[in-house]
Design a protein around this nucleic acid. Sequence first.
DNA 1: CAACATTATGACACCGGTGTCAGATGGAGG
DNA 2: CCTCCATCTGACACCGGTGTCATAATGTTG
Lengths: 340, 340
Amino acid sequence: MKPKGKATSFDIAHFAGVSQSTVSRALRNSPLVNEETRRRVWEVAKQLNYKVDKNASNLRTQQSSTLALLLFEDPTGDESQINPFFLNMLGSITRACAKQGYDLLVSFQSTSQDWRADYEDSHRADGIILLGYGDYMDYQSRLQQLLSQDTKFVCWGATVDGREDLTVSCDNYGGGKLAAEHLLQQNRSQYVFIGDASDHSPEFFARFKGFRDTLTAQGLALPERQIANAISTEESGYHATRSLLANNIQFDALFAASDLIAIGALKALKEAGKDVPGDVAVIGFDNIAAASFISPALTTVQQNTTLAGQMLVNNLLNLIKGETVTDTLLPPKLIVRKSA
Amino acid sequence: MKPKGKATSFDIAHFAGVSQSTVSRALRNSPLVNEETRRRVWEVAKQLNYKVDKNASNLRTQQSSTLALLLFEDPTGDESQINPFFLNMLGSITRACAKQGYDLLVSFQSTSQDWRADYEDSHRADGIILLGYGDYMDYQSRLQQLLSQDTKFVCWGATVDGREDLTVSCDNYGGGKLAAEHLLQQNRSQYVFIGDASDHSPEFFARFKGFRDTLTAQGLALPERQIANAISTEESGYHATRSLLANNIQFDALFAASDLIAIGALKALKEAGKDVPGDVAVIGFDNIAAASFISPALTTVQQNTTLAGQMLVNNLLNLIKGETVTDTLLPPKLIVRKSA
DNA sequence: CAACATTATGACACCGGTGTCAGATGGAGG
DNA sequence: CCTCCATCTGACACCGGTGTCATAATGTTG
């Protein structure tokens, strides 16, 4: 036939001997169109390798069957490495989208800059998923702006002031508790926490609270000096641990707010000649792939990323459909390996 | 003003007291429009939080400023884990797209099923990036179909019959050579290769050839029995190594076609009581994050993913613009750590 | 002052679908 | 034979921009 340019529904109409309207209906399997006609139209469409023009279709129907994912990175200088945990989430979100027949637009955002969250305004996406370690609290005003514009979005980790339903997250408090309980069972006596014990990062803070509260309930204190700050990188965990050791803090149990931090801690401990888990038991959080490779294999609190991705996508789609959504807390799970 | 629904250029026109045509021109900074008018239009647009409707715009201009990434996974049963190397690539591709002002649609494809490569046909993307370990050779016919439809695409790793310009890849042959040379320098005498020495996976095969050819040039053979097949997973590398050991193959140097395979091999060697690098030197390929965490830290051949992402995006954009593109081979780099 | 170039703007067709409405057709029922 | 209804189809407006063309307003030159 005519191979000039891409085929349109008018071309199909021409070859099938029907009107363009009928082509449109036939291809969407409308019950209004005759069986024989439908067959013929599909036949021609296949021959011409016709695909509906999404731009035209979206324009008319005012929806894009596309979601946008904004991935917030920790502000490390290093551009190339992304936290594997988020990459896992990305994977499960992509899959969840595909399963629902949605496409996914991915973009990386730096927390330090202004975000590009205009995917909905420009009709490129029906809704937005915000993914990060929740440390975009400073951007609460941006979130409120999204709300006021009636932009549909859901967040991982971070809470949105005044709204309980837009957040999907792991039960970080419960996860901290799991870690504390496991260490308590081993009769460890001197605990340290490495992460962020301020409420700057809501997720890390919840893990910290769950951990500390469980210890205090057993009469064990967690004084200021046994807490070290770190962002979620191996580097940062390494240095935080070194400074604890340099300050002669005694400890036989270490809870890191993320696996990357824990991996950095293991390195520092090994360098200091400490045996893990003999001298110090170490527990991480996330269960990234590297946790099982490293030696000693890392005991950690697992987040169910597959489920998380599904919940984010499902909640967002429900939000778009105008249904009410309830906030979602996913249960963490302790994965016991060698380090504790 | 009127907060009902999203603002259109007609709304802007109304409030700015000009025609819609002028709004469109003003917002795209056309030189045809008066400075004062432009200012006023921008002012109103900002107030109404106006964003150009991408569907309308794309429909009219017949381009989407969007690229699509098809990520082919190794056919492992496990859905949740993706090869970290590809996730790195995904990261750099995303960044490269953003830098060029393009959005990126991401989708995972299973090599075993039919792909969904209709992103271009449906005008959702201007071009497609295919990313995988090149083991989609069986799909050469699909690639040819894409070619015949005049779909713009570039591939990582895989070659496209009859076209040299659509592929960006690492110099895998050179990488295999680097590995062999490094091991030769250490006077290792008995070599094994774990990966895929058939040409099913073109990338692995090239690494194998570079490795073997360098050895043969030094008078060292690499007989069939010193080659074990594995796909790119830790699991697979582990089992391949175990079977080598079980068959009493003697070796003091191991080259794995990917880091995941190498990590699995390290595990098997450790279990067998072999010291690395004392008894066996191990070299991997890719330089994924886990390579530096694992103990002993893995010596490996690095692929420059940042550059790779940029080249893929740039080549694809040039292809779309109708410019000629030359094929691209990226130089690998040996990262020496503890394992060899 | 006529003739013409320059600048700024509006009217309008167009991109390729979707949804609504009117109308053609054919069979059933009175 | 006429009416009524169910079934199927085509004409047409519409989504919200972009690009072309015509035209008004202003300045420039002989």
